[in-house]
Design a protein around this nucleic acid. Sequence first.
DNA 1: CCGTATCCTCAGAGATACTG
DNA 2: CAGTATCTCTGAGGATACGG
Lengths: 113, 113
Amino acid sequence: MKKWSKDEGNCSISYTLSVAGGRWKWLVLYKLFSKQVLRYGELKKELPSITHKMLSQILKELQSDQLIERKSYNQIPPKVEYKLNEKGKSLIPILKMMADWGKENSPKSKENF
Amino acid sequence: MKKWSKDEGNCSISYTLSVAGGRWKWLVLYKLFSKQVLRYGELKKELPSITHKMLSQILKELQSDQLIERKSYNQIPPKVEYKLNEKGKSLIPILKMMADWGKENSPKSKENF
DNA sequence: CCGTATCCTCAGAGATACTG
DNA sequence: CAGTATCTCTGAGGATACGG
């Protein structure tokens, strides 16, 4: 199977996973949600262990699935900004819940506050 | 990197993704949520393209992360049931939202019904 | 600065067979 | 029925270099 099946188990959650699943997408979406708008390099800094190739690939996929918007300024040196568009913003409640759940359940978080 | 970093981007969503991320876990959790309780074989039937090996591996991980409960009946032939435990149930709102979002946004869903 | 192209590795996933 | 044990292999992901 190349891509995640969009209807594995004949189940509506599958489409969601097909566009936002994988190792990085939720994380990228979450960063774009919490920072509102980020340049390519800033995003890269936020995610230390993502590689150049992965990040640009992820961003391209998120664009083609209509979750984010890319704004390119025609200048030297180049400047490109990414942000959630409407469809992407509709994922925010999920992102928030995932973050809250992580805060609640992460072993170490119990101590930190 | 072997496992998903639990704090990539220093972000609470990472823990959530570390226990429920990957290709199958959300799907398995969703099945256990919607069917309440499932035997191993039933789960396998629900997810046609998961392999034997993957399913048992996923189930083991979900157990060790305390999301699901395994109940084994000592009989021949064996019978084993899986269901969400408390921690797993706390993910239900997220699962629901993912399913709803999928229903709303899946391209084909517009036509089919 | 923001990407793309290329090459390569390794772990995730498949197939199959075996066991309690 | 519900798993483990191997062995294999593919493709996602990493490293690096180049291009606009």
